[in-house]
Each structure stands twice: as C-alpha cells, then as structure tokens.
C-alpha cells in the first residue's frame, strides 16, 4: 500500500454548444441584457504599438466554415508584458490583453482589433516571437483548442521561436503564421484555422 495522493481531479470539459453566445455574447444571440459585454476591447485607447486587425475563418474537416465558434485571445502589450499581477511591470491603463470574438452567423468570418504584441521571454531566457494566444470553443469541440497566432513579417524572430521550433514537421509550422496585408490604410493579418485534414492548424496541449 502507498499513501493516497488526494489531489482533486479537474472538472471535465464539455462542449460550449451552439448557443454559447447566450452566455458569453448575448448581444449576438439577439438580446441585450448586460450594461457592458466583456472582451470586445482588447488593447484599450492608451496602448502603445501598431494598431492591427486580425481576421479569418475556422473551417471543419469538410472545408466548410464554422459559424458558431467563439474564440478568446490573450496577448502581451507592445513591450511584451501581460496584464497580470505576476508580471513585474505595469501595462497601459485600459489594456487587458484579452478578447472574445465570435464568428458571423452567415459567413463564419471573425475579426478583432488590437495592437501587435511585443516579444515575451520564454523558458530558459529564450525570447519568443510576437504571438497571440488563442482558445477556440464551439459545438462539436469537446475541449477548447489552444493555438498561437504568429506574424508573417517577423520572419527572423519566428525562425528562432522556441515554440515554433518545437514543431517537428516544418510544413506544419506555416499554419501558425498570419499573412499580412493592408486594406484602406489598415494593417490586416489573415489567420484561417483548419480544425482537421490537409493543412490542419497546429493545436497545443498547454
């Protein structure tokens, strides 16, 4: 016999279902209830750095866009600092670094406005390339999927990023790189997510 470890077990995950908007984005479900919904303003007005838009679709294994997805984003400010009490440095007033994004019911397109994050220190002092952490839930997804958005124009930093380089299959690394474009004077990064099949996006067990 050994001593029991007596850890609690994590509450098991379940799908967010098709009506996730009722709880987490009720305006989109079709009714106004809260004075303010959370997560639409990621960076706030005072954040330094380059203002960008990130957009894309999430497609399933048949190639069809998924129209009932919710994505949450988590990122550092332009100095590479997270808005979290364990970080040594303060972030700009109003910068939360967290966003909540839902897809359009008709097209499946999603988009959010933010600032481009700075580099964050990874393990053993290695710098990570600028990235936005992403968490994806939807009907049919039993446990939320974690991935990262990196930026096409950070080629040098991406090349030595310790997380990108953890992916043994070089072809798969490309699925994490958002493509840069400019539209009406605004910087837009395109990041399509493929849940399954050819060019399946890399998902992490974090």
């Amino acid at each position: 016999m050994v001593q029991p470890l007596k850890y609690l077990k994590e509450t098991p995950s379940q799908t967010a279902g098709p009506y996730v908007h009722i709880g987490l984005a009720p305006g989109a479900a079709g009714f106004g209830i809260y004075e303010q919904e959370l997560g639409w303003d990621i960076a706030g007005p005072n954040a330094k750095g380059e203002r960008i838009r990130v957009e894309g679709v999430v497609v399933d294994g048949t190639g069809s866009p998924i129209k009932d997805v919710m994505l949450e984003t988590w990122q550092a400010n332009s100095a590479g600092v997270y808005a979290h009490p364990e970080q040594a440095v303060e972030v700009e007033e109003g910068f939360r670094g967290w966003g909540r994004v839902i897809t359009d019911f008709e097209t499946g397109e999603w988009a959010f406005d933010t600032i481009k994050p700075g580099q964050v220190e990874g393990r053993n002092g290695q710098m990570m390339a600028p990235h936005i952490n992403l968490w994806i839930v939807a009907r049919g997804i039993n446990v939320g999927l974690n991935t990262r958005i990196y930026f096409e124009d950070e080629e040098e930093a991406n090349g030595i990023d310790p997380v990108i380089n953890l992916i043994e299959w070089e072809r798969r690394r490309e699925t994490l790189i958002a493509k840069r474009d400019a539209r009406d004077g605004q910087i837009v990064y395109r990041f399509d997510i493929k849940l399954q099949g050819d060019n399946e996006t890399v998902f992490f067990d974090i």
Partner: peptide, 21 residues
C-alpha cells in the same frame, strides 16, 4: 468533422500560459 486528427503538440508553459485576464 470538428476534431483535429494530428496529435496536440505539448508545450512547456511560459508566461503566455501561466497568466490570464
């Protein structure tokens, strides 16, 4: 049709994972 077929890539945690809103 909504489940990834490849294995998840295990990530040792960094500030990106151990902080949150």
């Amino acid at each position: 049709a909504r489940s990834p077929q490849y294995a998840l890539i295990s990530l040792e945690q960094t500030a990106s994972e151990i902080t949150g809103p």
